[in-house]
C-alpha cells in the first residue's frame, strides 16, 4: 500500500542523506521525497511517499525513528489528511488545441502561467492522482516537460506533527 510518511528532522548537514541512505541500504523504495525548513529554523520537515506491505512499512517507520536526526514521525496515511503536489507542465499548443487545453486546465482548476505562440506552461496543484489524470488528459497535446514537486501533506484536525 502507498504511505505518506512525514517527519521532523534536525536541520543538520547530512540528515537528509541519512534518510535517503536508509532507504537504499535496506532496499525500500521512495516514490517521492520533499524537504524544506519549518517555522522553527532548527527543524526541517520531510515528506516521503513509499509503498510496501504492512510489515515493511512497520520496519520503515521503526528504522526511521532510530535515526538520531529524526525528531518525530507521522504516517499521514494512518488517519485523515490532506495531500498536495504541484505540477508544472509545458505543452505544445497550436491551432484548435489552444482552446482545448485551456478548457482542460479550467476543468482541473489549474492555471496557465506562461504563454507563447507555440506553448503553454501550466501550473496545477492537487493529489498525485489528480496530477496523473491531468497529464493523461493533456497527453494529446505534445508534452515538452513535466516537473512535479513531490507530495507534501498534513493531518486533518487534532492530529499534528510537532515537537
Amino acid at each position: 500500500m502507498r504511505h505518506i510518511i512525514s517527519m521532523l528532522l534536525e536541520n543538520e548537514a547530512g540528515a537528509l542523506s541519512r534518510v535517503a541512505g536508509l532507504f537504499s541500504a535496506r532496499g525500500y523504495n521512495i516514490e517521492s521525497l520533499t524537504v524544506a525548513p519549518t517555522e522553527d529554523p532548527t527543524l526541517s520537515r520531510l515528506t516521503l511517499v513509499t509503498s510496501g506491505s504492512d510489515d515493511i512499512i512497520e520496519q520503515i517507520t521503526k528504522q526511521l525513528n532510530k535515526l538520531v536526526d529524526v525528531v518525530k514521525l507521522l504516517d499521514l496515511t494512518e488517519g485523515t489528511h490532506i495531500e498536495r503536489e504541484m505540477l508544472l507542465i509545458k505543452v505544445t499548443v497550436e491551432g484548435p488545441m489552444r482552446e482545448e487545453v485551456k478548457r482542460l486546465v479550467d476543468i482541473f482548476r489549474g492555471r496557465i502561467v506562461d504563454v507563447t505562440e507555440a506553448s503553454y506552461v501550466i501550473e496545477l496543484t492537487g493529489t498525485s492522482d489528480k496530477l496523473d489524470a491531468f497529464i493523461q488528459a493533456v497527453g494529446g497535446a505534445g508534452i515538452l516537460e513535466t516537473v512535479r514537486s513531490g507530495v507534501s501533506g498534513i493531518a486533518r484536525g487534532e492530529r499534528s506533527l510537532r515537537v
Binding site: 548537514a13 547530512g14 542523506s17
Partner: peptide
Amino acid sequence: AVGITRPCVKHNFL
C-alpha cells in the same frame, strides 16, 4: 569520513 561510515555507525558528526 562521515559519508563512508554512515551506513555502519549508530551516528556520526563532523
